[in-house]
Simulated scan of single mutants.
Amino acid sequence: MWKNLASNGITLLIVAMALLAGAIGWGMNQYRGEGPLEQAICLRVEPGSTLREVSEDLAGQGAVAYPQILRIGADYTDLADDLKAGSFLVPERASMEEILGIVTRGGQSTCGTEIVYRIGVAAVEVEVRELDPATARFVEVAEFTPGAGEVPAAYTEMRDRDDTRYRVAMAEGATSWQVVEALKSADFLTGEVGEIPAEGRLAPDSYEMRPGDSRESLLARMEAQQEERLAEIWADRAEGLPYDTPEDALIMASIIEKETAVADERPQVASVFVNRLREGMRLQTDPTVIYGVTNGQGVLGRGLRRSELDAETPYNTYRIDGLPPTPIANPGLESLRAAVDPARTEYRYFVADGTGGHAFARTLDEHNANVARWREIEADAAN
């Protein structure tokens, strides 16, 4: 009898161990295998949330089938106490193991709301955007101009959320004065700006910010990036340029930036000015004259007057030889590249062609014909 009992006990133990091994294997497959989520979601983890709350939220949104397995996995991997507050993008079919990595990894939120403060050449705009998990693209929720009318409720609401991300996007061609003035109305930044940075020394780009960051620190980042870009492109410059210093290249790049918004044209525009400098011709470019009138403080908003074109100023390239004394805006990377590696052309002239681009010419006769066509386009548009 004792032998039978012992035999039965061993059998039961083997069966129990087999069942336990099977349960563990099943649990591991559930934990590491493809999840049930059919479409990506934004998971918001509130400050102070527990793993139980988060796992139940995930189950409610269809991201996990067994929230208790996620909690067991978190305990086993020592991640149970590492939850990070924020909004996180959980991709479709993400495993529990992948989801735990997403909500415990740290860093900035990967989902939710983003406030973009856009510093343009003519205006400043604030855009409130929200990520659409299904497409992983941001969708505009609200847009407004600071100081002009009522602030949208969406902005006020998102400003108070811990997981809202901030970016300052500076457009190519904005002046340093415009950037500093714009930053004064960025209410998520702090501090005063002691001195306007030198013209041309700020790198147009998109900068991630945090509420409470100082305006001076942002400007310092912009200056450091432009200095790095300028050093890099100057080291790779073409031979035989008609200017000898990185500062001259920066001045040229700023003129190119203000002359065309068409990226593909920048090397050609650069070639016109480089050819003119090589042959001792004056640059004769309106943007430099405009800068001499406005000093970079805002947009002229009208055509140049004959008196302004005839005036003897350091920025009037109809009256002076060579380059103006400083840049006339903050050029982007592509304009910097064009300034140090212009296209190889015989062009000396260009004029608007009515499509947003320019018609280029080698001789004055060709240029005059292009000008005549442009005037016809202007006349037709006015009728």
Rank of each mutant, 00 (worst) to 15 (best):
R118P: 03
R52M: 04
L183K: 05
L333H: 01
G35V: 07
E46T: 07
S185C: 13
V116F: 10
R44A: 00
R229A: 10
E38G: 03
D264H: 03
E259M: 07
N8V: 15
T190K: 15
N383H: 07
T135K: 07
I255W: 08
P67N: 03
L83I: 00
E208N: 07
A270F: 02
P246G: 07
A6S: 09
R305E: 11
E208L: 12
R348K: 07
I24K: 14
D132R: 09
W234Q: 05
I328S: 04
V90S: 01
A154T: 05
A369W: 06
K84F: 04
G27D: 09
E223F: 08
P242Q: 12
S87A: 11
P342K: 03
S206W: 11
Q61T: 02
V128K: 10
A238L: 01
A338E: 01
T164I: 09
E228I: 07
L51G: 01
P204S: 08
P331G: 08
L58K: 00
A18W: 12
T288L: 11
S307H: 01
Q268I: 10
W2C: 11
E181A: 08
A270Q: 02
S185V: 13
R319H: 01
C42H: 00
M222C: 13
L218V: 06
P91H: 02
P197N: 11
I320V: 12
G173E: 03
Q225S: 14
R375T: 10
E199K: 08
W26I: 02
A40D: 02
E376Q: 06
M252T: 04
D286F: 06
I102D: 08
T104C: 03
L218I: 13
G25N: 11
I69C: 04
A94P: 04
Q61S: 04
V293D: 05
A59D: 00
V371M: 09
S109W: 11
D82I: 00
G194N: 15
G356T: 14
L13W: 04
N330H: 10
L219R: 07
E97I: 05
E125W: 13
S271C: 02
Q108G: 07
F273E: 03
Y117F: 15
A263T: 13
R215W: 12
R44L: 00
S55V: 01
R71K: 15
E127N: 14
L19P: 06
L218P: 05
A153M: 09
L19D: 09
L219M: 10
G354W: 11
D236E: 15
Y318N: 02
V299Y: 06
L250Q: 05
W374V: 06
M17A: 15
L230G: 06
A85R: 03
